[in-house]
Nucleic acid binder design. Structure first.
Length: 812
DNA sequence: ATAGGGTTAG
């Protein structure tokens, strides 16, 4: 036969050792290729017995071994192609080499298939290597085929083969198959037990894992957990927060001399793995002290050890300490630096508002050549977004060569956090156009965009999208939906989502209570709070902020005082500044201005600007100029933080007719560089948003809108409306002031709603600032005049207008 | 063995 003579010829012309091997390759290679492409495909070659080429093969095999040993797999393959009829062992050698590198696993499987084509029977060494390749590729179809081959070869009960099968099924997430293999294995060693345990652990099957561990120890084989067992088990305990169990594992390590301190040199790697897993378990269970002790006791650490510790501190919100650890790590040498540790440090920066350090880390990433790392890039992106530098975040996003779901989600939430909700939708669209699949976190970032815009139709679409994706029962998604429906004016739908969710967390309760709060439904908020108590769900600080502000928006002053008392004395929660703000807001909105003032002075904390501002707002409403002056002096001392306070202050003066002083405040505001964010109102009509600023004439239907407003004005004046021109800031003639009032953005949006929506529809308008007092009165009258329901959501709360009344009564 | 994006209040 032809190929046999070629082989013989090859053996005859075996080159002397000094000859460059490449020369030799070429010739043989072509011959081999021709063979396989002509004869071999049609008729599988007969099994090779040739002894004629033994010496040539021996030399080739030696070279092959060399290449494999030095990791030159492509050269090895090249050489392999020239071996006329490789035997099982040769195949096994190369398949093994391929299977140990995850990127080459596919080539290993090709080789395995070729082996079958060439009728070389796989043996008990072949199967484990081929199965390992399947594990690397997470390809259970291929794994199952090999399983059948092994059965066919009668080797499925072999210890190595069955352990490899078990491991393959575990890695391919086919746990029932893995459990079946495990149960039917005639013999099991520790490796098999550990593989099965790892399967349970990776899938969070705590009870299975514990049962497995117990039966392992009860065997008569004296199977004692080793380092691998515990390294598989500990992350599961960490995930479950099972500190007691984790501690007893630690104790076992010490008894069994597995403790990192006592390991022999050969087990040093095990020691690092075990120590890292232990400290991570302690950190994830919130026991940072022990995490730190394990860390300090470890004789050797690697970059994972450091990352785990730093990440643990970040997880427990000990940002400053996390940061110090990161610095300590750098001081130990750059070899410990990893994208993972940088990502943790960046999270610390983001929450500490430590932008400058974040930028330095950005530079460090670029310098250490890992700036292309996706994880670290995403952390950086999110840090910029949280710091309000959305443009930086966008630039970074555009630079990233690889983007994934996390990158897109970070950008979506970045836009929303920076008040650019419309653009968040654009990013979401782009993401889908690029075939990047949104997940739960993406939707949790996107849904608040609908809340911001009060875009109910968008919100409903998102809800639908969440249902289609099978995410509708996730707690965080439901929380976002509750908030969205509440802020879009559909508190009934919020409650529906709340009622139907399979499990609730503290955020669910708080969001629902807050939802009732912004709708002025203080009674419902209180009822829900009591229900929460009855179910034994402990409230947190935020719960009380929600509850107090609900009381405040509903005028429930006595109830609010009661809950504030209960909070400290019944639940032992120390009030934070936010709680004091709520209380001052509660008292002063209710008209108890002096009591609010006394309350501030009795506070154990030094009142910050926001506390005083809450009082100032009420001074404006109740026209208490004396107290307003006192309060504004306090605010000036503390330094007004932001624009709103200048506006309030100036409003106080305007209301008192002291326009010079009002103007002065505005001038200071300008000089100090605070820009007043313009009042803006919008309305969603058939799924698209129409926005108006004061005096806006840019809308296509502007003439009709103003004509409608004029008609309304005539109508409501007949009903007894009188313009309250104290809300106009400039010193104008009365008539001019009335004109300035009538083109407030909320009025424009309502007029447009009246024009565009059929009479039975509720008009729902959203405003970014607080509704002006005159508008409030006007809208009441409109609801009577036009006999329609109007809902206005402003920066504070909801106002439901009907038949000339507002749900908030006088608590504007 | 570690690790990135997200929900509530003011």
């Amino acid at each position: 036969m032809r190929h046999r003579s070629l082989a013989a010829a090859a053996s005859a012309s075996a080159p002397p050792p000094q000859m460059p091997p490449s020369f030799h390759f070429h010739w043989r290679h072509h011959a081999a290729r021709r063979l396989s492409s002509t004869t071999a495909c049609l008729h599988p070659p007969p099994l090779q017995p040739p002894r004629a080429s033994a010496s040539a093969s021996a030399s080739l095999l030696l070279q092959l071994q060399d290449h494999i040993a030095s990791g030159h797999l492509s050269r090895a393959h090249h050489l392999f192609d020239q071996i006329p009829s490789p035997d099982v062992r040769t195949y096994n050698d190369l398949i093994r080499a391929y299977s140990s590198s995850p990127t080459a696993a596919a080539d290993g499987l090709h080789l395995y298939r070729r082996m079958l084509r060439h009728r070389v029977a796989p043996n008990n060494y072949t199967f484990p290597f081929a199965l390992k390749a399947c594990s690397a590729l997470v390809d259970h179809h291929c794994g199952r085929a090999i399983h059948r081959h092994a059965i066919h070869a009668g080797l499925q009960a072999d210890l190595f083969v069955s352990t490899a099968l078990l491991d393959m099924y575990v890695k391919c997430a086919c746990l029932p198959d893995a459990a079946h293999i495990f149960a039917t294995m005639p013999a099991r060693d520790l490796v098999a037990w550990n593989a099965m345990l790892a399967g349970y652990a990776h899938h969070g099957m705590y009870h299975h894992a514990v049962a497995h561990l117990l039966s392992m120890q009860m065997q008569m084989h004296r199977l004692r957990p080793n380092a691998s067992t515990l390294v598989a088990l500990l992350p599961l305990l960490a995930q479950q927060g099972a500190l007691a169990q984790g501690t007893s594992v630690h104790a076992y390590c010490i008894r069994a001399c597995l403790h990192p301190n006592r390991n022999s040199k050969s087990k040093l790697t095990d020691g690092v793995l075990l120590g890292t897993a232990l400290l991570d378990m302690y950190a994830k269970c919130g026991s940072l002290l022990y995490a730190r002790r394990v860390f300090d006791a470890m004789p050797a650490r690697n970059e994972v050890t450091w990352s785990a510790l730093i990440g643990g501190f970040v997880l427990c919100s000990r940002m400053t300490q996390a940061f110090l650890l990161f610095k300590a790590m750098l001081a130990q040498g750059l070899c410990f630096l990893s994208p993972t540790s940088i990502a943790s440090a960046l999270r610390a920066c983001a929450s500490l508002d430590h932008l400058r350090m974040g930028e330095q880390l950005h530079a460090l990433l670029a310098k250490s050549g890992v700036h292309a790392d996706l994880t670290a890039g995403n952390s950086l992106l999110s840090m910029y977004a949280k710091a309000g530098l959305i443009d930086q975040a966008i630039a970074l996003f555009d630079e990233m060569a690889v983007k994934d779901t996390v990158s897109y989600s970070a950008l979506v939430s970045g836009y929303v956090q920076n008040g650019r909700a419309e653009e968040a939708f654009l990013v979401f669209k782009k993401m889908q156009a690029c075939n990047v699949e949104p997940d739960a976190a993406t939707m949790v970032s996107l849904i608040p965009a609908c809340s911001h815009l009060a875009a109910l139709q968008h919100g409903r679409c998102s809800h639908g999208s969440v249902i289609i994706r099978g995410l509708a029962s996730e707690t965080s998604i439901c929380n976002a939906l509750i908030d969205m429906y509440a802020k879009c004016g559909r508190i009934d739908l919020s409650r529906q989502v709340f009622n139907m969710m399979p499990s609730r967390d503290i955020v669910s309760w708080n969001t629902m209570i807050a939802g009732y709060g912004i709708h002025g439904l203080g009674k419902e908020a209180t009822a829900l709070f009591l229900e929460m108590n009855n179910l034994g769900f402990p409230p947190d600080g935020v719960t009380f902020i929600c509850l107090l502000s609900a009381c405040s928006h509903s005028g429930l002053v006595i109830e609010g005082k009661h809950w504030f008392h209960v909070m400290g004395h019944g639940y032992g929660l120390t009030p934070r500044m936010e709680h004091y703000i709520c209380m001052v807001d509660l008292l002063s909105r209710g008209g108890f201005l002096d009591e609010a003032y006394e309350f501030i002075q009795s506070m154990p904390l030094r009142a910050d600007v926001r506390v005083w501002v809450a009082l100032l707002g009420a001074c404006r409403v109740y026209k208490n100029i004396d107290l307003g002056k006192k309060v504004s002096r306090m605010i000036q001392e503390l330094g007004p933080e932001g624009t709103g306070n200048f506006v309030l202050l100036s409003n106080i003066y305007s209301a008192a007719g002291r326009f010079d002083e009002a103007a002065e405040v505005r001038i200071i505001q300008k000089v100090q560089g605070f820009k007043k964010s313009p009042g803006c109102s919008w309305i969603e009509i058939n799924g698209s948003l129409h926005a108006f600023v004061g005096g806006d004439q840019s809308h296509l239907q502007s003439p009709e809108i103003y004509r409608e407003l004029d008609n309304i004005l005539v109508g409501i004046k007949k009903l007894g409306y009188q313009p309250d021109t104290s809300f106009v800031l400039q010193d104008l003639e009365e008539e001019e002031k009335e004109k300035a009032l009538i083109c407030h953005s909320e009025k424009l949006a309502i007029a447009y709603g009246i024009l565009s929506l059929s009479e039975d529809k509720t008009i729902f308008v959203t405003k970014n600032l607080r509704v002006c007092g005159d508008c409030h009165t006007v809208i009441k009258h409109i609801s009577l005049l036009k006999r329609r329901a109007i809902i206005v959501r402003d920066a504070n709360r909801f106002h439901h207008f009907k038949n000339g009344q507002c749900s908030c009564g006088d608590f504007w």
